[in-house]
Each structure stands twice: as C-alpha cells, then as structure tokens.
C-alpha cells in the first residue's frame, strides 16, 4: 500500500494492471489445480448415486438420472461395516497415539542426545525402510502365530506402533530447532524430558500433525496385513469390506463408490481438523522476534 501511494498516477495504474494479471494467472492455475484434484472425489460421489448402467459411459456423466440413495444402504449392508468402522477407528487411533509417543522420544534422542553409536544406529533404522513390507509378510505372520496374536488387536496394533519414517521426520524437524534453545533451557535448570514436553513438542506441532496424519491414514488404509492376521469379521477393518465389491469378472462400482465415500469421510474430517496445525506453530517464528 505504502509503495503504491507514492507512485504517480499512470505508473500506479500500470502496477495495478500487472498486479491484477499476476493474480489472475495465479488464481487460474490454482483453480485448475483444485478442479483436477477434486474431480475424482466428485466422480466418486456422483457414481455412488448412479444405477449400474450409468457408470462406464463413453462420455463422463457427472449427474445420475435419479440419485440411487439406496446404494449407500446396500453397500453398508453388504459387509459388516459397523464392526469394520469400530475396528478401523480403534486401531488407527491407538496406533497413532502410541506411535507419536515412541517416535518423539526416539527422534529426540537422535536429534539432541549424544551417545555411543548414535549415527550407526540411525543408519540401521533407516536401512529397515529399504526392505519392502511384502518380503517380511510371511516371516511376520509366523512371528504373530508364535506369539498367539492371530485374530487379536495385538497383531493389528503393536507391530505398527513404531515407524522409522516418523522417527526420521521428527528427528529432522527437531534438528532444525536451534541447539542454543536446548542449552539455554538446560542452564536454566530444565530437565531433558521436561524440555521435550514443554518446548520441543509444542514447537513441533506441524511435524507431529504430519506424522499423526500419515499414521492414521496408513492404518486406516491397511489391507493385506489385516486380512492375513485375522480370520473373523469381528477383527477386520474397512478396506477388507471394500474388496467385497470387486471380483475377477466384474465390479459393482456404484456400491464400491458408496462404500468408498463413507470409508474416506473420517479421513477427510481428520485432515480438516489437523490442517490448522500445518499453518500454526512454525518453530522459527518464536526465535526471530
């Protein structure tokens, strides 16, 4: 504002025009991006209300002729979804909470403590990320059988409470918080654990929110692990329910889309809630002052 007020009339006009053009293109690109992102969701919603013969058409049809609201009811009843929902929520929430505790403690140690073999240990941790999960599925299954954990929540939760990726992410974030803050706090008589709780974690909200969101989504979407480790419907989760609608010879897309809609709703809500955290609490702002 201050700058534009000082400009002569004609220059100001030019400035405004270029400002407007820039904005116009910026918004055009953003809107186009948003539309591309949102299109699959809109398609999912509209397909969930279609009759089967309206789904795969030559031309994309965005609105169903008559919304088939009963698709939701049929999809909901096709598999024991209320049980699946309860399980998915419980497992995802518990995994998320325990993981945040473990990851922040481990990441704190890797970021701020000095101990023998720290770097070697960290590299070893990272090394485990290189092994694809499928390779470990059968050995892990045998371990779970030996623990007697098949068809229990233990198998669905405990192996997933430690994530190297989260530790890595949090460690990187913790390392970006200046070490001087750590030293100053220790000089003032703050314990290491207290420092983590009262300083580090509140400053790391965005990273914590990211870690939590990843965990929740990962756990919510987990399919093969759940299927392999459980036998009874009372232990299974939503993704297992979604497979009911797809077979080798065809798929009931309208029901699948209806089920996908109610399956992803909680994730969407969680994202909207945590999204604030991404904007808030940026660590460095507290120090610039």
């Amino acid at each position: 504002m201050a700058r534009t007020e000082m400009l002569p009339e004609n220059q100001m006009w030019r400035y405004r025009l270029s400002h407007f053009t820039k904005r116009f293109f910026l918004y055009a690109v953003l809107i186009a991006g948003a539309l591309i992102m949102i299109a699959p969701f809109v398609w999912m919603l509209s397909s969930s209300l279609k009759a089967p013969h309206e789904i795969s058409l030559k031309y994309i049809k965005w609105l169903p002729e008559t919304p088939q609201w009963q698709n939701y009811k049929i999809a909901w009843e096709a598999a024991p979804f209320s049980t699946y929902f309860r399980n998915s929520f419980f497992i995802a929430a518990v995994c998320m909470l325990i993981e945040v505790v473990f990851s922040s403690l481990a990441a704190y140690a890797f970021a701020k403590m000095n101990f023998f073999g720290k770097n070697v240990l960290f590299v070893l941790f990272l090394g485990t990320m290189m092994i694809p999960g499928e390779v470990m599925l059968i050995p892990n299954y045998i371990t779970m059988v030996n623990f007697g954990w098949i068809d229990t929540y233990y198998a669905l939760i405990i192996p997933w409470t430690v994530s190297v990726f989260s530790i890595f992410l949090l460690r990187q974030f913790f390392m970006s918080i200046p070490h001087e803050l750590f030293e100053a706090a220790l000089l003032d008589g703050c314990g290491k654990f207290k420092y983590l709780i009262t300083v580090m974690l509140p400053l790391s909200k965005p990273a914590l929110a990211t870690v939590m969101l990843f965990k929740f989504i990962g756990s919510w979407n987990a399919f093969l692990w759940v299927l392999i480790m459980t036998n009874t419907p009372s232990m299974r989760t939503i993704p297992v329910g979604l497979t009911y609608f797809v077979s080798d010879v065809g798929a009931q897309y309208n029901y699948l889309m209806a089920a996908s809609t109610f399956a992803m709703a909680p994730i969407l809500i969680l994202f909207l809630l945590l999204q604030k955290q991404f904007i808030q609490g940026i660590a460095r702002t507290g120090l610039k002052g």
Partner: peptide, 22 residues
C-alpha cells in the same frame, strides 16, 4: 466359511499358513 479377500490375497494367506502351520 471364512472370506479371505480376493484370489491373490487368498493365495498369499495360504502360502503364509503353510509355514506357520495354520
């Protein structure tokens, strides 16, 4: 009767079960 997902999932689970004795 226990539903074990699609055919490929069923095969994976069967192979896993041989080594675990389940």
């Amino acid at each position: 009767a226990i539903y074990q997902g699609r055919y490929s999932d069923l095969n994976t689970k069967l192979v896993a079960s041989f080594s675990a004795g389940t």
